[in-house]
């Protein structure tokens, strides 16, 4: 594939589904500099994946798949960085600061997602975005039954937390 063709397709994907990248970045990185770094990494991986896309799944499913894999790899690398092996300072990334106040419901959900383990975080994001169990199973590489169990557990934990906060 020509570079210009890849750039064009990537541009279309980004224009249509950039929210996916934002959500993944937000769920896995918690500081502005880290978000810049992760967004850059995720965008590069999605850009590189354009050649491999065969249309077997929808573009959002594909982008989620690539973005989540990239985010989980980044998290592991980040763990090594944080153990002092390599300082990370990327301030001038491709992402500007948010310009609007976040919906408190969304903020609350992000706060809860951040408490989950890496893999469950992926499942939670896909569940919140309304992906079918079949798609989540394909993205994560687990059975639909396992997806159902995980989602039930996540929903139960969220409901319980919500109830606790409402009472208090």
């Amino acid at each position: 594939m020509l570079d210009s063709e890849r750039d064009r397709i990537f541009g279309e994907w980004l224009a249509g589904h950039q929210g996916i990248l934002f959500k993944v970045v937000r769920a896995y990185a918690f500081k502005h500099a880290d978000r810049q770094d992760l967004f850059q990494e995720v965008a590069i991986q999605v850009w590189r994946s354009v050649d491999a896309y065969r249309g077997d799944s929808s573009v959002p499913t594909w982008m989620y798949r690539i973005a989540l894999n990239a985010a989980i790899s980044w998290t592991r690398k980040q763990g090594r960085h944080q153990r002092g092996k390599q300082p990370l300072e990327i301030m001038d990334g491709p992402l500007t600061e948010p310009v609007a106040e976040a919906d408190p419901r969304v903020e609350w959900l992000y706060a809860q997602i951040a408490q989950l383990k890496d893999v469950d975080r992926s499942v939670a994001l896909l569940m919140l975005d309304g992906f079918a169990y079949k798609d989540i199973a394909a993205i994560a590489g687990i059975s639909e039954g396992n997806v159902a169990v995980k989602i039930n557990r996540i929903k139960a934990a969220l409901t319980a937390q919500l109830a606790r906060e409402t009472e208090s």
Partner: peptide, 10 residues
């Protein structure tokens, strides 16, 4: 949620 304003702009 409005993705483009909530998360910043590319």
């Amino acid at each position: 949620q409005d993705a483009s304003t909530l998360y910043g702009v590319v």
